[in-house]
Design a protein around this nucleic acid. Structure first.
Lengths: 226, 226
DNA sequence: AATAAAATTGACCGCAGTGGTCAAGAAAGG
DNA sequence: CCTTTCTTGACCACTGCGGTCAATTTTATT
């Protein structure tokens, strides 16, 4: 047993051939993400991963450590694939939000389980008892992200007859609504290779509408001035 | 055992004093709504309801029938307290949606468990295997409701430079976003007697903004014409 | 080749909690 | 008083769980 990144884990797991390691990781993420901590079954995990029961507890001390590992990996995944790509310097709120959603969708399409696991663990409060440190890390991450997401926005772009916070809410709810429905639609159709490029066209059209409706009439964008 | 409303149930349950019947009903709804079918425990139900284990199976044949009963009751509750109050003749879409949301919120505040149970059973697909007839009834109810909700809208109220379906989506997403957040905020504060009247003020303000932004400039509403 | 060490297996264990039963007793009705 | 209805909770068989470990195979070392 050894400490790596704050999580004690048998060395053996890291020495595995990457293929097998990956298979186990995916099985673990999938099980916890779809079932939640309580319902998740180590038997199903080993079955899905194609290893013997004993191996799982050779690599991980117990179910709780296994969950901690899954949780930490999910946080890392979201941080690297999504949060790190956020651009808080973009003053145009719609553009900022747009980039965020597009990053999120790409990360989600690449692997939805970390998202599902975190959402699940967060609302079912599993993580509080089992991994309070990671739970807090997650809370800070989101609180921090949200705070920055809505800070330093160039509100002079907004139409002046509405309060900026109202405009922000309208944009937020609209985009969230659109992405929720898009993701829900993806659940039904199975495909892993969804054509995000066509979906993005709808999305950009939506953003154009939001601009037209909530921003100042664009005298011009400086593009063809003079 | 006897058939009532399509569900076979021991007569005995209906003969109970209303208090006890109500206590049992509430315990059943709460358990299935919060735990889902699999996790729901008959032991917890009898404990919560304050009756002996034997009585539950004296009133209901088994867990499945119990779930059917809870499901049917929830459908009935939503139909009577919410769906029946929808007004599909209102041509102004925002007004129509507004009434719907306010009805829904009132029904939800009165008793959230039927909503939670149906949502849970629907997404976890519990109802398909256990009560396919009720599942289908539920599906038809929602499909029907949605279809009517968005039919026969007076699109001449909308600003003409945007496609009506876009405007409808914007309104839908905004209002849904607002109500989701309002409900989420309610979860955190416990109180059963939430002051909906003040919440409704925010809501109406939101609607006014939507009108200003998505409807034609109101030359007037006929109120002070002439 | 021989030996030691590491990796892997899956049958097995105790256990917690499940849905469901039923003999026994209490209450109510005639 | 007897009969019927209601009510109890100890009890049961069972399932699936997390976790173990003696035995076996594979790999590394000498």
């Amino acid at each position: 047993m050894v400490k790596k990144g704050g999580i004690p884990i048998t060395e053996a797991f890291y020495k595995l051939e990457p293929d097998k390691q990956q298979r186990i990781l995916e099985a673990v993420l999938k099980e916890f993400a779809t079932q939640g901590y309580d319902k998740a079954s180590t038997n199903r995990i080993v079955q899905e991963a194609g290893i013997a029961k004993g191996m799982l507890f050779y690599y991980f001390k117990n179910k709780q450590e296994l969950f901690r590992y899954a949780l930490q990996h999910s946080i890392k995944y979201l941080t690297e694939e999504y949060v790190s790509k956020l651009d808080y310097t973009e003053p145009d709120f719609i553009t900022r939000f747009q980039k965020a959603v597009e990053s999120k969708m790409q990360a989600y399409l690449k692997n939805p389980y970390p998202f599902a696991l975190l959402a699940n663990a967060y609302i079912q409060k599993d993580a509080i008892a089992i991994a309070p440190d990671l739970y807090q890390e997650l809370e800070e991450l989101t609180a921090n992200g949200l705070q920055q997401m809505f800070a330093n926005i160039d509100t002079t772009l907004f139409r002046p007859d509405l309060a900026p916070e109202h405009i922000i809410n309208l944009i937020r709810w609209t985009i969230d609504g659109w992405s929720n429905e898009t993701i829900a639609a993806l659940q039904n159709q199975d495909l892993i290779d969804y054509d995000w490029d066509t979906g993005v066209i709808d999305f950009r059209e939506l953003l154009a509408i939001l601009r037209k409706v909530l921003y100042k009439e664009e005298a011009d964008n400086g593009d063809f001035k003079g």
